[in-house]
Amino acid sequence: MFEFFKNLDRRWIFLLMFISVSIPIYIVGKTGKTFPEVPTILSEETFRAIEELNEGDPVLLSFDFDPASEGELGPMATAFTYHCASKGLKLYFMALWPVGPQMIDDVIEKVIKPDFPHMEYGIDYVNIGFKPGNEGVIKVIVTDLRQLYTTDDKGTNIDKIPMMADIHSVQDFELVMNISAGYAGTKEWVQYAVTPYPDKIKLVAGCTGVQAPLLYPYIPDQLPGLLGAIKGAAEYEKLVVDKYAGETPDPKYLEGRRRMGPQLVAHLLIILLIILANVIYFGEKRREVR
């Protein structure tokens, strides 16, 4: 037995991980039950930043992620959009990643079209699409949006879109929301948009778990709110759903919370594996001493 665990083939670990993720997914899917969430300060600050805005205020949502990280970032993209649409804000979508526009399309199809049918493209929301150049794009649009964006994502002249009339640069938005899976993403928005214009640009963000530790140095001055991975999304989702979605929210607005079940079991498995590995390590040491 000891020898088996000592030379444990990693495929056993892979199998355990598969089971510990798939079973909770099945159970949550079947029962629809989720763990309760207690929002932490960063999720509350993110929520507050949007709550403070008034109906009709323009907000920029930069979707800087791709299908690979959709599993981790999709729920917060949905929650951000739902929150902004519920508040009656004017939504401006853009992307620094080539497949970002597809992520924007997804959220428009999922949230705006079915649940906010009164919202009109070009008046209440617009997708100005992707531009290549990473942080170079931010550096330009922070002072002059039209230098890079002459049309929206569909090729319509930006000057013919009514809601673009008062928008000349990123400084004209009341809030910038960034969902980021890496480079270019939140760090670049902080460095090239918020840092040079701290009084005019306010940023909140959602990011992958691995990125979050790198963004803590920017909290709270340059980045008042941050949602870290699924946990952050679940907390924020709770705040949004509790306030706007009523008693029986649509399951699509609970995606973050539903994913916390598999995450809990996976984390517990990792802890158990680490304990097991250490038991083996100390057992081996004791044998050597003998």
């Binding site: 444990l8 990693r10 670990i13 892979f14 355990l16 991980m17 598969f18 993720v21 791709d66 299908p67 690979a68 990280s69 959709e70 599993g71 996976a266 498995l269 990792i270 594996l273 680490i274 097991l276 590995a277 250490n278 390590y281 100390f282």
Partner: peptide, 28 residues
């Protein structure tokens, strides 16, 4: 094709994190 393939590659991280944690974390 693209969407499920890239999502699969990213999801593999969960498996590798588990095996790396099992191998690397020792209370030395």
């Amino acid at each position: 094709a693209f969407k499920p393939l890239t999502a699969t590659m990213f999801a593999m991280l969960a498996f590798y994190i588990a095996s790396a944690a099992f191998r690397a974390f020792r209370a030395k």
